[in-house]
Design a protein around this nucleic acid. Sequence first.
DNA 1: CAGCACCTGCAACATGGTTGCATGTGCAAC
DNA 2: GTTGCACATGCAACCATGTTGCAGGTGCTG
Lengths: 147, 147
Amino acid sequence: MSTRSRRSTEADVVAAQIRASGARATPARIRVLQLLRAAPAALTHHDIEQALGDAMLDRVTLYRVLDWLVESGLAHKNADASRVFRFSLAAPGEHTAHAHFRCDDCGKVYCLDDAPPPPPALPQGFQLARMDVDLRGRCATCAEARA
Amino acid sequence: MSTRSRRSTEADVVAAQIRASGARATPARIRVLQLLRAAPAALTHHDIEQALGDAMLDRVTLYRVLDWLVESGLAHKNADASRVFRFSLAAPGEHTAHAHFRCDDCGKVYCLDDAPPPPPALPQGFQLARMDVDLRGRCATCAEARA
DNA sequence: CAGCACCTGCAACATGGTTGCATGTGCAAC
DNA sequence: GTTGCACATGCAACCATGTTGCAGGTGCTG
Ligand SMILES: [Mn+2]
Ligand SMILES: [Mn+2]
Ligand SMILES: [Zn+2]
Ligand SMILES: [Zn+2]
């Protein structure tokens, strides 16, 4: 089995998922959904533009694909601490349960293996749905490069 | 005691607080800090511009005053649900960052008084600069309204 | 393989925030 | 009081992120 046919098979699966939601399986949607599936953490519009490389879409089209993903329930959209939207697969995400570290220099996001700290106590009657722990600073590589 | 002298006294208190932090007590800083002290909830840059009225500052100066307030520990800065920064008075004597809870229903942001959890361990060589702990769910008021 | 609903690309716009630089001023030293 | 200068301000230009309107292209269904 060639690399090409394997890749095409994965795209077919994604395309089927899209059609199942009642929408058209366009290259833009297939590519973006594949990226979200492979992502270790929630991605920004910018992250995705970078990742698309050659298969670059128009900026606006990407915004619309992302909005469509959210509307159709395939992705979640959250504003991060620096007020940019991040998108992640709606499927029970593996990266909801741990903390993330983002390097201020290289921008890379690391999933921290350690269990996240327990949430602080909430006032009476508050219902916790989700906790995000976002650490920022310099990764080992960038820290060393500056030493 | 006239209204004028009472107001001037309050400004003096604020000015003293500013000088205590080692910075210059300028009219811009005094006025903005007074507004934050009187505010019932976190204010946006825009809210403050409106409230300043006659005593309007340059847009950029206001951004810089707000950044200075945050850097000097006198205020908190958080992105609200619609990705706009909101500023609120820091609790006196509060040094470490604390966690925030945002209600998914009403959008209100609560500063949690408890100390934030300790950051999880980082891989060797990583340098931590900041930690954001963002909790989301339903606040007591909204939770009760749904019960 | 034709038609149309829906998707895409481009240009223009909106908003919130930042940077560079010349000018003004709080305040500490005299 | 006056003065000096580090720091604060104002202004113009810029940037980042996201949105809207519209003309033209395309996946899908029949
Ligand atoms: Mn993760
Ligand atoms: Mn706070
Ligand atoms: Zn790095
Ligand atoms: Zn609420």
